[in-house]
Design a protein around this nucleic acid. Structure first.
Length: 321
DNA sequence: AAACAGGTGCTAA
DNA sequence: TTAGCACCTGTT
């Protein structure tokens, strides 16, 4: 057997991983601008991608396995930054599986409408360390993820490191999500989470976040927090709406707005970004998260989200110590 | 072994 | 309004 999908652990609602079908389909998608799968999938905005050989093309130098919504995929490219993405999927295990559907899902997820060349140009010329950061992360794209999955994932991310978050998300998908093909599962719906006991959610090693995840599922399911309404709300109002959920503060709310709703003018601030803003833009002056956020939004305007993610990727992987 | 991890809720000034 | 602390659990 070839590369395998995410491992499924035992859980209350044990399910087997189906054999990976031999009938794998492939297409090549040309985006309107450059993409780096590594920068995009490893910068920490999504938790479901793992490096894995591309089915039938072991020589592709860049390849990942993951899930977009209800569709499991392999993606790859021939060099670190290209405009073309190789995509493979298993048509037998998902209902909508034609190449045009898959292509539409991939284009949307990778935010094909973003003008990456322009964004990178503007940020590179914006001064300070931005030129260096953008050069390092060239081809990084802010994804357009499902808002619910994004919300739940970031609630689970509180005070956790990225590998641990991925593990919890994979576990929840394996236990409570729907089959997505290639032996993988989609992220569970609010209803699927809300119908569990808090104690069975705890088996995902989510720790004290169990009650936050449950609260999010219940409020979204009941419409107490309306994720479709959030889409059309002004940023500050949308932030307050999301923060009605326990475990959602300013940082998580901003991540959901950026990675789930593609609000490119928000600038989520975590400890790393606060550090970066202080060190590289404020001469080392200490500043609170709110000040850092306001600085980022003002300085980078409509591209604040891209600035944030480039800074984050660069400071964590390449910035001088 | 002990500290830390992409924050947030709660309580006390 | 804001500072300080606890919080599950895997990883370093």
């Amino acid at each position: 057997m070839g590369a395998r999908g995410p491992r499924i652990r035992s859980c209350g609602n044990q399910r087997s991983v189906g054999e990976i079908s031999l009938d794998i389909r492939e297409t090549v998608i040309r985006l309107s601008g450059p993409v780096s799968l590594k920068a995009t999938l490893e910068c920490g905005q999504a938790f479901r991608w793992k490096p894995a050989a591309f089915p039938g093309r072991p020589a592709l130098p860049v390849a990942y396995r993951g899930v977009i919504g209800e569709l499991a995929l392999a993606v790859g490219q021939t060099s670190p930054v290209t405009s073309e993405i190789y995509v493979a999927w298993d048509p037998s295990s998902v209902s909508l599986s034609g190449p045009s559907y898959v292509s539409q899902v991939v284009r949307r997820y990778f935010s094909d409408e973003d003008d990456i060349k322009t964004i990178e140009g503007v940020l590179s010329r914006s001064g300070g360390v931005m030129a260096e950061a953008v050069a390092y992360g060239r081809g990084l794209r802010i994804l357009t993820q499902d808002p619910w999955e994004c919300l739940a994932s970031y609630v689970l991310s509180l005070n956790k490191n990225i590998p641990a978050i991925s593990k919890t998300v994979e576990y929840l998908a394996g236990c409570f999500g729907e089959p997505a093909g290639m032996g993988a599962f989609g992220f569970p719906s609010p209803g699927a989470i809300a119908s569990q006991d808090v104690s069975s959610l705890r088996q995902s090693r989510c720790g004290f976040r169990d009650k936050y995840l449950y609260d999010a599922a219940v409020k979204v399911l009941s419409g107490d927090v309306d994720l479709e309404l959030v889409r059309s709300m002004p940023v500050e109002e949308a932030r307050q709406e999301l923060m009605k959920i326990k475990g959602v503060g300013p940082k998580v709310a901003d991540c959901v707005l950026l990675f789930g709703y593609h609000r490119l003018d928000v600038f989520p601030v975590d400890v790393w970004i606060a550090r970066a803003v202080s060190r590289y833009f404020m001469g080392g002056k200490k500043l609170g998260p709110r000040e850092a956020r306001e600085f980022g939004e003002r300085r980078f305007g409509a591209f604040a989200g891209y600035a944030q993610e480039h800074l984050f990727y660069w400071i964590r992987n390449a910035a001088p110590r």
